[in-house]
Amino acid sequence: MKLFREKNLIEHYRRSPLFGIGDFIVVLAVIFACTLAAKSLVGSDTGIYADVYVKGEIVMSVPLNTDALYAVPDTRASIEVADGKIAVVDNDCTNKICIKTGFVSRSGAAIVCAPNGITVIVRGGDSEYVTGVH
């Protein structure tokens, strides 16, 4: 009897297709799980930071969670990070619009020095945007 059942089982495996519907469901589930895991890794919140551009080229990215004073490369400008906010605190431009802008902190906020081609854009967090005059 046992021998008969084993023989039937072997015949079942021999006749069954190499990939069944169940196999494909397992494959899809694994891929879905992998995708979710990868997305959560890639899209994870890296915190608020500011990209600093000089004449269109990014020259530095600074975190806003650490107080510090930075010299902007290839310029005479300085930026300061304090209490999660960032500002241009020194510059040799003529109109000082960048310094007058003061400290900004929300993602999407920007500070511009048109004469010297300096742009500071706050990024990260929830990717918010600010419409205003620049």
Binding site: R106, A110, S127, E128, Y129, T131, V133
Partner: peptide
């Protein structure tokens, strides 16, 4: 597209007025 605080956007984004 953010051109100095002037925007064109397609997908939904959170936006504030200064």
């Amino acid at each position: 597209v953010d051109a100095g605080g002037t925007f064109r956007v397609s997908e939904p984004v959170k936006m504030y007025i200064q």
